[in-house]
């Protein structure tokens, strides 16, 4: 890779390695540098096109939506689509509900998963490994299996039709995030905790004052993934909030809106754009944490 000739700036041309000299070398250079780049540009265009189409549609006047061939640039830019889309349905109410559920889950999951992960990673006790295997095994159970009995439980205690069923369970943690945090806690050196222990610190103090501050990157990853899980969730709100429009999340609200105005694409795309913005912002401010988290868990 050190002999790379930069195809854009030409840097490195002066020291063309022997295998790229001459006519057949030029072919080889093209295959090695130009073709991958062109492929990437082509693919990236395909991936970015839906976003452009989304934003472009969201700013078009109605008359321009149903035009063939489609025009990319709205003429004129109809910014009023946004306020209109946001007042068509109680958008801010739905957004508040989504935020409430997502942030509640983030806080509750951070507390519960870090506590449990500490118990699995930092304290030695008999039976710990066995229970950890149980934890790993529960990740293999697909959620449709537990869906119905959990619904029956929540129905019996009167939690269907309220946020409770979507929020409180987070206090019991989630196997995936416990696993992620446990792996991270295992890498923190033991001597800090040992020194604190000699000074008479309790396990909880060690957890609170030593492990949690050192685990900030892992906790940030969990926070972001939990937020996304809940912000994007559809089936959960659909089952537990059905019927009570006051409690709808954005995902449910958009579904309703689509059902009622399936031909008003400009307003619909404006509403979709507003739902996507928090996700995009979250991504751009925390790109590294984000991608590391995905690479670690393999999950969205």
């Amino acid at each position: 890779m050190s002999n790379t000739v930069n195809p854009l700036t030409g840097a490195g041309v002066g020291r063309i390695p022997p295998r790229y000299r001459g006519a057949s070398g030029a072919v080889r250079w093209t295959m090695r540098h130009l073709v991958p780049h062109l492929l990437l540009i082509g693919l990236a265009l395909i991936f970015i096109l839906p976003f452009v189409w989304l934003v472009s549609t969201s700013l078009k006047p109605d008359s321009q939506i149903f035009v063939l061939p489609p025009e990319w640039v709205p003429h004129p830019f109809k910014w009023s689509n946004y306020p209109e889309a946001l007042t068509y349905i109680p958008y801010f109410l739905y957004m508040r509900n989504s935020l409430y559920i997502a942030l509640f889950n983030v806080c509750a999951m951070l507390i519960s998963c870090s506590l449990v992960a500490y118990g699995f990673a930092r304290i030695h006790w008999p039976g710990r490994n066995l229970l950890f295997i149980v934890l790993l095994a529960t990740m293999m159970i697909p959620y449709p299996v537990t869906l119905i009995p959990v619904f029956v439980i929540f129905r019996q205690i009167g939690w269907v039709g309220s946020f409770n069923a979507l929020t409180w369970p987070a206090l019991t943690g989630s196997a995936f995030y416990i696993f992620l945090l446990r792996q991270f806690f295992m890498t923190i050196p033991q001597d800090l905790a040992d020194a604190a222990r000699v000074d008479g610190a309790s396990e909880f103090q060690i957890y609170r004052r030593i492990i949690l501050p050192l685990a900030k990157p892992a906790l940030a990853t969990v926070a972001i993934l939990v937020f996304l899980d809940n912000w994007n969730d559809f089936l959960g709100p659909l089952i537990y909030l059905g019927g009570n429009q006051q409690d709808y999340t954005l995902a449910l609200g958009l579904n309703d809106y689509f059902g009622a105005h399936s031909a008003e694409w400009a307003l619909l795309m404006a509403a979709v754009t507003v739902m996507v913005i928090p996700v995009a912002v979250l991504f751009f401010v925390s790109q590294r944490t984000f991608i590391q988290g995905i690479a670690l868990t393999g999950r969205r």
């Binding site: 839906p50 189409w53 989304l54 996304l228 912000w231 994007n232 559809f234 954005l250 995902a251 958009l254 579904n255 689509f258 619909l268 795309m269 979709v272 739902m275 996507v276 996700v279 991504f283 984000f290 969205r300």
Partner: peptide
């Protein structure tokens, strides 16, 4: 890949 499913479905 991090788009809300409902958003990409409607798009």
């Amino acid at each position: 890949s991090i788009m809300p499913q409902i958003a990409s479905a409607l798009l």
